[in-house]
Design a protein around this nucleic acid. Structure first.
Length: 617
DNA sequence: AGCACGCCGACT
DNA sequence: GTCGGCGTGCTC
């Protein structure tokens, strides 16, 4: 290849690449994947060499200022990975490269890199296995075995975990089980340390890398295995652009590097189950001697709610609570929401206090005695008189942990009643009755009780979300594990398959039903959803822009792609920006993204509007 | 992303 | 007359 011109990407959200002349004095050293300094317009930027060319179609080409490193910071594999990643997540290649590198590298800091000797394994191939360890009793020995074998082959291991707690636990387990060169990637560690660690990994001085989502980009040499622990965790999905999913990125990288992937979960996602089923890969389900408790489904439609008062406890549940507490047994009441109430409203004129920035109803929090916005945490004093009609007809609606707590106190005045929600720092142990939210499922050693009661599952089940059944099932089976004796489920949907199959933790029946349904409706994992978000200061402009973009997309689309009506995003207003979104559904990501990129390009971008694309919403 | 270019309102 | 508002377009 004639090395006259270098194709260079810079760290800006631009498509690129851009052509630069290669000065003779660096011609012998420059390689694909190297960092360079270039003059880009009026400023000096770090660029990444992605290709060479004998000529350029541009007239005025500037020369590269200098070479940053003798060795490439991006390997062939990482270049391909970031390119595939950009195509999948509908961002530019340069954005993908920038997200894959530590800040130090992006800022042009010096590192010393070895000449890399990748010893590609001869007949390596992609394969996946899913360890479904419902009780999380045996997964570690299964994983440890695979890590040991990988290390024996002189290959390295990348271990992904969803959150800081799992990171801590896994770090401990790895230290105890393996005596090897091991590092933990942590965003809290500071840029200097991160850069040094990146350099060590890149130089092949590390055998095991442990980290959260972003560690999927760790530049391991001779990578031989990727493990994704708790693959079903929603924390793997990044909330800002590029909106990538750690598990999907890991799958992409394993396919590309032709190496095995291990997924672990207590409640495997339908994506993981589908990957295993559709490709004849292995599902491993360790046997357990633990006997699960029975579930009792209480059909709420048989027990009318008392007039003008929320029926928190049905009669059968009250009976069970009285019996259990009478025998000095413990009870957990589970509710999928926090705060005393969902909203405050004036019964006379209907006025409700909303967040001035996000335009959603504020939630009243009893312990802080404040109205709080659940999105931006805006706080304000609760009102006694209606600001609109001045009446004192202010009422608080809904059912939260605090409401249940006060009700429970009324019914069981002598019992020790405690609360566990996201605001609580320490985990209560000495309780008769514990009122808990989702948080109880996200802590390492959650408290158990004779009876666990789910007060309100219908809101979760009836959500306008194609994952509602999946979430309901996972929630219920996870709660089953906290009950020693019995799980009580209060619902109006007694016959629903998610509730029926969850009551005896029948994963296979649930997956069968749910996958059949998803397939027939053309939902993920048989298709992809992509949402295009538009936001800006002016509500009017955002709406106009969204409508015209939607029009353009509808004109360009093939009939295999479905475009839903433009809607306000949830929340419609966030941190002073009005938000709209266009949702698309299609079988193939490549086709969807081609349409979106073309659509955004064709559509003349009105200023003051920011567009973001979220793949697999 | 940032910055220049360009075309319309109120000001020493 | 200009100073400056930000809408539009470009960076190899």
């Amino acid at each position: 290849m004639d090395k006259k011109i270098a194709k260079i990407l810079v760290g800006l959200p631009l498509e690129g690449p851009f052509d630069y002349k290669i000065p003779p004095k660096i011609a012998k050293d420059i390689q694909i994947g190297c960092r360079v300094w270039v003059q880009f317009g009026f400023r000096k930027l770090v660029g990444y060499v992605v290709d060479f060319s004998p000529a350029s179609k541009f007239k005025k080409i500037r020369p590269i200022i200098s070479l940053v490193d003798r060795q490439p910071v991006l390997s062939q594999n990482m270049l391909r990975f970031t390119k595939d990643f950009a195509e999948y997540y509908c961002c530019t290649w340069s954005e993908a490269i920038e997200t894959s590198l530590p800040v130090g590298i992006r800022k042009g800091r010096a590192v010393s890199l070895n000449k890399n000797a990748e010893t590609a394994l001869p007949s390596a191939q992609f394969n996946a296995c899913l360890i479904h360890d419902f009780l999380k009793e045996k997964y570690w020995e299964l994983i440890a075995e695979r890590i040991k074998n990988t290390l024996k082959e002189k290959s390295s291991v990348l271990f992904l975990v969803p959150d800081a707690i799992t990171l801590k636990n896994t770090e401990e387990l790895i230290r105890r089980s393996f005596n090897c060169r091991f590092t933990v990637l942590d965003r809290k560690k500071g840029a200097k340390v991160q850069l040094l660690e990146w350099q060590k990994i890149k130089n092949g001085e590390i055998d095991i890398v442990l980290g959260t989502r972003s560690a999927v980009f760790a530049p391991l040499v001779n990578l031989g295995l990727i493990i994704v622990e708790d693959e079903d965790s929603s924390i793997y999905k990044q909330e800002q652009g590029p909106f990538y999913h750690g598990r999907e990125a890991a799958i992409m990288r394993c396919r590309l590097e032709k190496i095995p992937l291990v997924l672990t979960s207590q409640t495997p996602s339908l994506e993981a189950v589908h990957l295993i089923q559709s490709s004849k890969f292995k599902l491993i389900r360790p046997e357990s001697k633990t006997v699960l408790p029975k579930a009792q489904i209480v059909d709420l439609s048989l027990y009318r709610r008392k007039k003008d008062r929320l029926a928190i406890f049905s009669l059968p549940l009250l009976d069970i609570l009285q019996q259990t507490l009478g025998k000095a047994g413990k009870t957990i009441l589970f509710i999928n929401r926090k705060g005393f109430s969902t909203a405050m409203r004036c019964k006379k004129c209907g006025f409700s206090l909303k967040c001035p920035r996000c335009n959603v109803s504020l939630t009243f929090h009893y312990d802080q005695h404040k109205l709080i916005c659940r999105y931006c945490h805006y706080k304000t004093e609760p009102v006694e008189l209606c600001p609109q009609c001045n009446s004192d007809y202010i009422r608080y609606f809904g059912m939260g942990t605090e409401k249940i707590e006060s009700e429970a106190h009324r019914i069981f005045p002598t019992k020790k009643i405690m609360r566990l929600d996201s605001e609580k720092k320490n985990i209560p142990a000495n309780f008769d009755l514990l009122i808990a939210t989702q948080k109880i499922l996200n802590i390492p050693a959650p408290p158990m009780a004779e009876v666990v009661a789910v007060l309100q599952i219908d809101a979760t089940l009836n959500r306008l979300d194609f994952r509602a059944a999946e979430k309901t099932f996972f929630l219920l089976v996870s709660l089953l594990k906290l009950a020693k004796d019995k799980l009580v489920i209060q619902t109006h949907n007694r016959e629903h398959y998610a509730i029926q199959t969850a009551s005896n933790a029948d994963f296979d029946s649930f997956y069968k039903k749910e996958l059949r349904l998803r397939r027939s409706l053309g939902f993920p994992p048989f298709s992809h959803f992509v949402s295009i978000g538009l936001r800006g200061r002016s509500e009017e402009k955002v709406k106009i822009a969204a409508n015209s973009l939607s029009e353009v997309l509808n004109k360009l689309k093939s009939k295999s792609i479905e475009i839903f009506e433009t809607q306000p995003d949830i929340p419609a207003k966030l941190r002073g920006n009005f938000r709209c979104c266009i949702l698309l559904k299609g079988r193939k990501i490549a086709e969807l993204n081609r349409l979106i990129k073309k659509g955004i390009k064709d559509f003349k971008k009105k200023s003051g509007i920011i567009i973001s694309v979220n793949v697999d919403t």
